[in-house]
Design a protein around this nucleic acid. Sequence first.
DNA 1: ATTTTCAAT
Length: 198
Amino acid sequence: MEAGPAPEARPLMDEQTFLDNFSHLNCPRKTYLCYEVELLVGENSIPLDEYKDFLHNESSYKIWERCHAELIFLERMASWNLDTELRYRVTCFISWSPCPDCADELVKFLRESRHVNLRIFAARIYERFPGYEEGLRALNAAGAEVAMMTFQEFEYCWKNFVDHQQDEDESFPSWDNLVVRSEELSQRLAGILQNQED
DNA sequence: ATTTTCAAT
């Protein structure tokens, strides 16, 4: 009997959801977070597809029911009970960068989770709350790699987290000024992480 | 017009 590869049951994001939420041209009032986990073994990394998925924040008119995407993600990571004797690399692609409170929670997590390396790629910088710069610096100082998504990450997410229905080879459509916007944001982030004022 | 910012008039 042949035991073929199990069919992928993992849900994918629809194309419009991805474009609406990750584009530089929009400022949606919600946040999507795509994540994946690799097991690090020596020089190699092994993708753990069972931990590859996406989520979004919980939005509600009731303030106590709201939850930022990062906190949902932290709960989800805790539920995995990753082996503390092993080493993992967790990569997040998030449409808005973490707010100061979420950055704090991520920092706490990193302090308690020496077996996890965290990389965060953000599509846009979320600057609604004062202190967002300090939050991003704290995350960086706690060992997280914080970077803006470039064309490469947008395209990677498009290929890996988005449902292309029939057309598997549909290429990432991009949007106006993606590369320029991404570079601008990367420079701003670099300034923030170096504690420079604009 | 460089600001649609993880809900609120």
